[in-house]
Design a binder for these strands. Structure first.
Lengths: 208, 208, 208, 208
DNA sequence: AATGAATGAGACTTCATTCAT
DNA sequence: TATGAATGAAGTCTCATTCAT
């Protein structure tokens, strides 16, 4: 036990540094979610952390950089999940099903985690937007679907529209899923999957 | 000279008032389209009109109010179209088909009109976003679909997800439609409609 | 009398505008003189005017722009004086004598005028620097002298050093003149002139 | 290895202290030369040393204090030179000649030394200003001249102006000397000396 | 002593909004 | 009602300085 500690002898300094960096990231995630990315200012972020104004700039150079860090973080955590799905999926249907379920589960997790941290009072007219993190994960899923489609696994019609339609269903249903209590990822995923797969089938047949 | 004006039932004042109000609206539509709603400032709008800064506040209290006016305007212009579709549609399928086509045509129109007004030289990084008008019209369509669904015209599954799925397809495909040249509203509408209708059919059957 | 007024019917608006512009210029002249150009901030300038922070930017875009305006102002007022001296001067000696006297008189005037406006309390460690205005007028004189020298009116030695020497005497003596009470422009000018002219003569003879 | 250090009368601590103090001084000299005193920040100085920000304050309380130290250093190094000149000079003329030459040589040395240290690539707009050291040495020379003048060695006219004139020539010519390649201290000194001595002679005669 | 992150004052600037004309 | 300058809050960012380690 003590060995592990000895192997990574982090001083109090390093510790607070990591904590602060995380605090800024967390605050940004929250505020982006509440006010929307565009309406958020650097001040909003640091205000939430309780740190001094200048401290922000010890960690990030701008709001954009925080957003990028957030995106990277989300994508980095989701990427391995998606990768294993890509590898294991038996055919297109299975892939879509698994990918959307994984996406929704990640979404639910993320959402809960920053919902939990939000202060209870909600006096302001909030604009719940998509956080950079959610957007990044969404892009991962989208790219995977688009790749599958363009790879020829799925035949007919304009692949651009095809992907757009899948994306549209996945995103919109996902968003509504987050608004329900309790959040039911399985049901939502089942729904979206069915909609997409049948819809696509209809297209092929129509094209045939 | 002044006679003509004096004879007119609307005095010069009234006329100017209407003109200014419209000028602000037009300018706002353009700028929202070019910079995106969030990035647009009141200054951007009035600068475009050529009016004085203070004049803006004789007509609107804020950027938000202009956006609302713009939304209302869009909705007001689109409402009769949608109404006649609702009246004439023969069944659910026909309704979806017509509504989405009408929506896409409106979208294309709007989009073209502010694209046309843009100055040829593009020194700044433009962000072509959804204008408040587009958003409003979208909401109209969405509400119509939701209403149809909840009215029981369409049976199965969670109506919330159902609507979300339709909406997702319609919006996302619509957006991609605007990115293509030439803009083909019919093809896009046909695609989205097919996707939605087959998808829904699959859901009912799956539920049965 | 009233005609003149009718010919330039300045409203109260135009009036305050001119006043503000002038107030900023005056404040800048003072603060530059007291703190030195480099140590002066835009805030220092507007603080002195009593205007709001933003108002500064209605008139000038930066500290640099104020400095330029100040320089231009000084140079513009001094230029005609110098021009007539150039035209009328009988030979090199006369030119130097007249130019330096004119320069000193201008300096004394300027100095008095911004001294007069300075608040009496001088608690801070002041750094009396050259204002942009003084610098501009000085450059005018310098250019005139340099031109005369390079034109061949004056023969010997490195013209660069020659001019530098003249300049050095003129500037340094001028500065000391301003520190004395009463300010005696004639005596200072006589001194500097004698020093320069004899010094130069010595050089030619030495070269010969 | 450690023995040598242990044997040494100054411990490692002491040595580092001296080294750091010197490193800061050197860095400051460089940066003042490159950016100009006013534009230099404490951060600029410590960045150049490679030391930590806080370390600076173990040695100096502010940028001003470093400048003072630098001045003192310059003066301290120049003082003995000037002293011997004072002692050996045969009369006023000889004194002026020697003092100015010494001053110019010191100037050239300083200038070269920080020019040499500059990195070859010059991405930033450099401002080669007078360093605190140069200023200090200049003051030494000025004081010496003033003293000679007021001591009665040189009779006529306002001693204040007299000194100012000498100073003006010396400084201005010195500055131009540094701008030429190669730097010719002897020629510049000869010029300035001639100018001053003849000029002064003219004044006495004029006064006589 | 050395370190370097935290602090917070303060500089610069933009912008929504007001208000005298 | 139109005008457009004045206002001042607020955002961005830098920097001197402190202080826990």
């Amino acid at each position: 036990m003590s060995e592990a500690i000895l192997l990574s002898p982090v001083g109090k300094r390093e510790q607070t540094k990591v904590q602060n960096r995380q605090a800024i990231l967390d605050a940004a995630r929250e505020v982006f979610g509440e006010l929307g990315y565009d309406n958020t200012t650097v001040r909003d972020i640091i205000r939430r952390t309780g740190l001094a104004a200048g401290t922000f700039y010890n960690y990030y150079r701008s709001k954009e950089e925080v957003a990028t860090a957030l995106s990277d973080d989300g994508a980095r955590r989701f990427a391995p999940i998606l990768k294993s799905i890509r590898a294991q999926a038996k055919g297109w249907d299975d892939f879509v099903r698994s990918a959307i379920l994984a996406y929704y589960e990640f979404l639910a997790d993320e959402h809960e985690s920053w919902l939990a941290k939000r202060p209870p009072e909600e006096t302001q007219p909030h604009v719940y937007g998509e956080t950079p993190e959610m957007a990044a994960v969404f892009r991962e899923v989208r790219d995977a679907i688009v790749e599958r489609i363009t790879t020829g696994d799925r035949p007919p019609a304009d692949p651009d529209y095809l992907a757009a339609a899948c994306i549209g269903v996945a995103r919109e249903v996902g968003e509504h899923m987050l608004a329900k209590r309790p959040i039911e990822t399985k049901a939502a995923a089942a729904f979206a999957t069915a909609m997409i797969l049948t819809g696509l089938k209809g297209l092929s047949e129509g094209a045939a």
